[in-house]
Amino acid sequence: MIELKHITKVFKTGKSDVKALDDVSLTVEKGEIFGVIGYSGAGKSTLVRMANLLEEPTSGDVIIDSDNLVTLSKEALRKKRQRIGMIFQGFNLLKTLTVYQNIAIPLKLTGVAENEIKTRVKKYLEIVGLSDKTDVYPNQLSGGQKQRVAIARALSHEPDILLSDEATSALDPDTTDQILELLLKINRELGITILLITHEMHVIQRICDRVAVMENGKIIEQGPVVDLYTEPKHQTTRRFVESIFPSQTPKHIIKDLQKEGPILDLTFVGSATESPSLSVISNRYQIETNILSGNIVELKDQTFGKLRAHIKGSVQETTKSIDYLTDQGVIVREVVIHDGIY
């Protein structure tokens, strides 16, 4: 559906060149929600703007549905863009137009017939839940409502793809969740493929199928969201995962506890999250368990939990416990302190 091939983008700023994207390739399959996460300055905003060529690559190809945008004529690119919706962090609505006009005027300018416009505005305002705000100006709306209007505007062109450039970054946590819920609904009910960028792991966790992690203009890791959660390979990825599971335990506590048995980071995916494995091991073996921190989160279509626990007991008994847990599908990692990092 979306294929970015070996994209490099160099910004010439005076004397020094800035490489915003450095040989980036990624493929977004039809019907999936693909997330790109990175800290600011990682190049993710430039990346998403490649997908509709708002930003032209210095080299590389942008292939959408077998059309290479880079080689399209201006006119053909304009037509192609009408099939690709986009929403932004700043909503980008016209202040001087009502909600209705904000959706209707771009439709009119792309040649949609008058009565069809009426039907579509009504339909998509209903989908985003703002049917009662037709004649209101954007300044009278909250941030979340503005983003809903922007989403309705994008959807009204009935695109195959929706690009989201930090669409929830300006919103509070509750509103963010509502917008994410809406994006999920759009993806499921209208079958629209979504490519989004964000700096919040929460967004990835809630709605994405696959994710790419970016740093310094490069993709450093990509794959299904669950894989990144269970086995983050790169340091930056690990930091993003930890942003969801703050599991900082004071170092002296770890040192003290380790004298009487290992401290384990347990990762549960899917059905493993529902079985009471810890209580089973403490009944079955000569050990005592003590939970230091823990959390379960809902991924798009899976649950995922992380627990840090201390297992107090003899080496033999704790080893048996670890084996049992591993058998149950729990991913076990022992916490070790080295050089202050654990």
Binding site: L77, R78, R81, N92, R153, L163
Partner: peptide, 9 residues
Amino acid sequence: EAYQAMGIK
């Protein structure tokens, strides 16, 4: 930019 992205002249 939003209007450019929508393919408007």
